[in-house]
Amino acid sequence: MRKVLILDPRDNIAVCLADLAEGDVVQQDDITITVKNKIPRGHKIATAEIAKNDGIIKYGERMGHAVSPIAIGEHVHVHNILGDRLSAEQV
């Protein structure tokens, strides 16, 4: 059973297929990631180091940018990323 889903090889996030807890180790598809914080099923986990303002890549396409640095294994969601458009409304 896979724990995460990598949608495109260019992505810097993966989608969690199970609830992940801090300290869990995900080992599949040539990656090994130690989970940094609790991440619910269906949410995203960083699979690469992401600097502030770097693009968040899902499906090989840019779906937004980081508003703070994100480490491998961290939960990637509305607390640390924003869409490139409509940022004002979302803030």
């Binding site: 995203k44 968040i56 779906m63 937004g64 990323i81």
Partner: peptide, 27 residues
């Protein structure tokens, strides 16, 4: 239609941005 996207339910489900939601359909 744009202002309230992604919806609260979308965000709970793990979607973070409107681009992400729309890419999910366009994929």
């Amino acid at each position: 239609i744009r202002g309230a996207q992604p919806s609260r339910g979308n965000i709970e489900g793990g979607l973070s941005t409107l681009e992400e939601k729309s890419l999910g359909a366009a994929k």
